[in-house]
Design a protein around this nucleic acid. Sequence first.
DNA 1: TTATTATGTCCAAAGTTCTTGACATATTCA
DNA 2: TGAATATGTCAAGAACTTTGGACATAATAA
Lengths: 63, 63
Amino acid sequence: MKNKIKAIRKKLGITQEQLAEDCGVVRQTINCIENNKYDPTLELAFKLSKTLNVKVDELFIYE
Amino acid sequence: MKNKIKAIRKKLGITQEQLAEDCGVVRQTINCIENNKYDPTLELAFKLSKTLNVKVDELFIYE
DNA sequence: TTATTATGTCCAAAGTTCTTGACATATTCA
DNA sequence: TGAATATGTCAAGAACTTTGGACATAATAA
């Protein structure tokens, strides 16, 4: 599963650290997800979507 | 996190077993998710959405 | 250049999801 | 009513996500 987190985060001008804080996780978690080490939980996917102002269906690309 | 899986599944007239097969998981997994024992992984959330013909953002209610 | 900030990566532990196998109850139907 | 199908639940273990701490490199700014 791919995602647009890094691109949207940069467009918003925030760091991995800031995004992590907003979502209640640590920086490494954001880093791993952006670099496709693993997918977030559904709950974190929703938090990321909310913080980045996009739908889950837009933020993640399934297939 | 709540979801509309049971309602949509029944509207489509399929069993937990059939939905499970379509999504590549076992029946207990569907049962647990419908009854809020735990949330699905993001990947399974997308599979469920695809099978039930709704967006992830519609199928799951965050907050 | 030097200091600071941001990002990438590693490891082990803790927590969550999913499976397998099984059994109980509920629902449907002949 | 009895048989078959559907749903609910349990427990142990495998697989995956997240954390905390640490260190390396990259990028930015003074």
